[in-house]
């Protein structure tokens, strides 16, 4: 029983970390990377969402 629970915890922990890291990458890309093309495309969103812009 204990083994089953631990295995299931392990099964869930890794995907959770994966999702969190992916989410962080997406937010960095849409909200923070200063590359000109990205900045211009996301400009209004960055302001409206309260990300530091410019």
């Amino acid at each position: 029983m204990t083994t089953t629970t631990m295995t299931r915890s392990g099964l869930r922990f890794l995907p959770a970390v994966f999702a969190a890291v992916l989410g962080l990458a997406v937010i960095s890309l849409t909200g923070h990377v200063q590359a000109a093309a990205l900045h211009d495309a996301a400009h209004d969103v960055r302001h409206a969402t309260g990300f530091p812009c410019h």
């Binding site: 989410g23 962080l24 990458a25 997406v26």
Partner: peptide
């Protein structure tokens, strides 16, 4: 995209 990023973390 931004809210999908939030959703992944959430």
């Amino acid at each position: 995209l931004t809210y999908t990023g939030y959703a992944l973390i959430l």
